[in-house]
Design a protein around this nucleic acid. Structure first.
Length: 362
DNA sequence: TAACCGTGGCT
DNA sequence: TAGCCAAGGTT
């Protein structure tokens, strides 16, 4: 080993020593000495994209029980996959996950590619996930640069260029640190360090294995990293949601188009959503003619790029009601089986509450 | 490159 | 409260 690379090797070694003592125990993570299951690693990585561990855990356990293997997932109807994902958000992940399972089952004999390049070809697997699965599942020397790693590296080297422009440099620095031994543990160690020590606010520098070499720590500026471009917030959009309940309790629903916002998920019918939506003639947007009445409180929901406020209209409709084109009535007892995103669960709950008959006088 | 794409928790 | 943040990918 050359003198020039020795400090990097020392950094990696120090991190692995820390990891062996402080590694987190996670449902999808193999214990020391165990061989990781690529299927579980892959599913966990997709679920964890922009999503907290606490939110993922129950979904992961249910998902594994329902789809134990990549073949089982590939063979499942897409409605089942979307229903298993409902509430987790970023639903294109679920569509791509299903497509990826089919590709692995059909093109790779049910075996995941073990290289970064091979993984990168699959739907829903980008630069980060390809590196993470290659490293974690197959112990390949790959960089897995997520938000944690970006934070750790920009602090360690006091990288002042704001994200995302600094991504290539960060990736270079990670590759320069990669150890020849245990690259999979190194990838996980870097993420554990970012998640538990090198946190966005109030990092625990006193406990960090890299407290000595960390350039930001030396300058006392660690909490100012990573530098980022400020993001702009979207304008609130408005609209109306329509909860139509048949006399037998069935509710009118429809499936959204496969692409775009909440693509492939189930909704109660709504109007268009826009910043200047006028509520006065909302009933013109109703899916069918009925005695619509508006609930007292609108449903508010915040998406990544805009807030939404939906007025909720409810109506009781007769059994003989014609089902509008592209819609269906779901029996009341089966509403929980539908792949409703949270915003429509909110609208549905508000509607059902308004439709509930008042308690009879004693 | 930048916009799009959910949700929940925390400060 | 309002903004930030969390194991990002696609177009």
């Amino acid at each position: 080993m050359s003198l020039a690379t020795r400090p990097q090797a020392a950094k990696a070694a120090d991190l692995l020593v820390w990891y062996d003592r402080h590694r987190r125990v996670l449902p999808w993570r193999a214990l020391p000495g165990e061989r990781p299951d690529p299927y579980r690693v892959w599913v966990s990585e997709i679920m964890l994209q922009q999503t907290t561990i606490a939110a993922v855990k129950p979904y992961f356990e249910r998902f594994m029980a329902r789809f134990p293997t990549v073949e089982a997932l590939a063979a499942a109807p897409s409605e089942d996959v979307m229903q298993a994902w409902a509430g987790l958000g970023y639903y294109s992940r679920a569509r791509n996950l299903h497509a990826c399972a089919k590709a692995v089952a059909e093109r790779h004999g049910g075996v995941f590619p073990d290289s970064e390049d091979g993984l990168r070809e699959l739907p829903g697997i980008g630069a980060y996930t390809a590196g993470a699965v290659a490293a974690i599942a197959f112990d390949r020397p790959a960089a897995a640069v997520d938000g944690n790693v970006e934070r750790v590296m920009t602090r360690l080297f006091a990288i002042d260029e704001p994200l995302p422009g600094s991504k290539p440099l960060i990736r270079e620095q990670v590759l320069a640190l990669l150890p020849h031994q245990r690259p999979g543990d190194f990838a996980q160690a870097l993420m554990d360090l970012g998640a538990t020590i090198c946190t966005p606010r109030s990092p625990a520098c006193g406990l960090c294995p890299w407290r000595e070499p960390c350039e930001a720590r030396q300058a006392g500026t660690q909490e100012t990293y990573p530098r980022k471009q400020p993001k702009k917030t979207g304008k609130t959009r408005f609209g109306a949601a329509f909860v139509a309940m048949r006399e037998d309790g069935a509710v009118l629903v429809r499936t959204r188009p496969a692409k775009g916002l909440l693509g492939g998920m189930v909704e109660v019918p709504t109007s268009e959503w826009s910043a200047d939506y006028v509520l006065d003639n909302a009933q013109a947007d109703a899916p069918l003619k009925a005695a619509w009445r508006r609930t007292l409180v609108p449903v508010r929901h915040v998406f990544t790029h805009f807030p939404l406020e939906l007025a909720v209209y409810v109506a009781k409709v007769p059994m003989a009601t014609l089902v509008p084109e592209g819609m269906r009535f779901t029996p009341f007892a089966r509403l929980r089986e539908e792949a409703f995103p949270n915003v429509f669960l909110k609208a549905l709950e508000a509607g059902l509450e308004a439709l509930r008959p008042p308690p009879s006088a004693p």
